[in-house]
């Protein structure tokens, strides 16, 4: 005689669950499943802010993450950078994470060099590199920007660049875009940069970190892109306004199809687990245990 349903459900091999999750991600990727993404106000606020910046505005980008969270952080980093450059803002790229420089280089290669080859280094954009010191570094940037960044990432004297004229402190920026995945990250940019410098901070973070940052929205944080969903929402807003960026700004949108299917499968497993639990409880009651 076969075991009751709840016992069979409780004994499901975990490898079958892994396989189901794997397939739920792989199949939509192979089939190129695309689902509609609608930007929410918390993401739209960042888009609207960058959209409202006049040409020549200074936007400071800090890419504080590493390769381990690239699937979540890189699409949002590249989409916001692309948008700022499309609005002819002057962009400053830096990081307070030692693993950040390769992510910046990738963004420069994918966005600046491919989509904006006419922009001049040192006049329209600059790569400042990594600075140690965590929140202490942000504190130092608030007091004396060029005191910390005495050179760009390639070792050239900082005052030799036209883009650095008039930059003495974080206060001289129109917007800080902090893309992060942990400590130090967005929270430190709010505490040590945005709040004391009175500069709006727009953030993009991994999904794990997003719930920790909601309390700062909307007074201390202009907007928040939470995980892949946040990145996909930003890309959707960007493509709606600038359709010619659809090919290069769809990284997160493409990944949201598999993401959604995987969520459905996980929800099904949660439901099955609960069904097994209640069936077992009923069986115990019947047996008088």
């Amino acid at each position: 005689m076969s075991a009751p349903l709840h016992q069979r459900l409780a004994r499901v091999d975990r490898r079958l669950i892994f396989l189901a999750i794997g397939l739920s991600v792989a199949l939509p990727l192979i089939l190129n499943l695309r689902l509609a993404v609608r930007p929410t106000p918390i993401v739209t606020k960042i888009f609207d802010k960058i959209e409202s910046l006049p040409p020549g505005s200074r936007v400071l980008f800090s890419f504080d993450y590493g390769p381990s969270t690239m699937p979540e952080n890189q699409p949002m980093a590249e989409a916001t950078l692309r948008h700022a450059l499309a609005k002819e803002c002057r962009v400053y790229l830096m990081t307070i994470w030692e693993t950040g420089p390769p992510q910046i280089v990738r963004a420069i290669d994918e966005v600046v060099k491919k989509d904006f080859p006419e922009r001049v280094y040192g006049r329209d954009h600059i790569y400042l590199g990594f600075k140690a010191g965590q929140q202490g570094a942000i504190n130092a940037l608030l007091a004396d920007f060029k005191g910390l960044f005495t050179t760009d990432a390639n070792g050239a004297e900082i005052n030799s660049f036209e883009i650095m004229q008039g930059v003495e402190s974080i206060r001289n920026f129109d917007l800080i875009v902090a893309i992060g995945s942990g400590l130090p990250g967005v929270k430190e940019w709010i505490q040590f940069g945005g709040d004391p410098g009175n500069v709006p901070v727009a953030a993009g973070v991994t999904a794990v970190e997003a719930p920790l940052l909601y309390p700062y929205y909307p007074r201390q944080l202009l907007g928040l892109m939470g995980g892949l969903q946040g990145a996909a929402e930003y890309e959707t807003a960007l493509i709606a306004k600038y359709p010619h960026y659809e090919t290069q700004s769809s990284q997160a949108i493409v990944m949201m199809g598999p993401q959604t299917v995987a969520h459905v499968v996980i929800i099904l497993f949660i439901v099955l687990g609960n069904v097994a639990y209640f069936l077992e409880r009923r069986a115990r009651k019947k047996e008088g245990r």
Binding site: V25, P71, A207, P258, A262, I266
Partner: peptide
């Protein structure tokens, strides 16, 4: 969502 995103990546 975060873990699945990494798997998708």
């Amino acid at each position: 969502m975060g873990r699945i995103s990494l798997l998708v990546g």
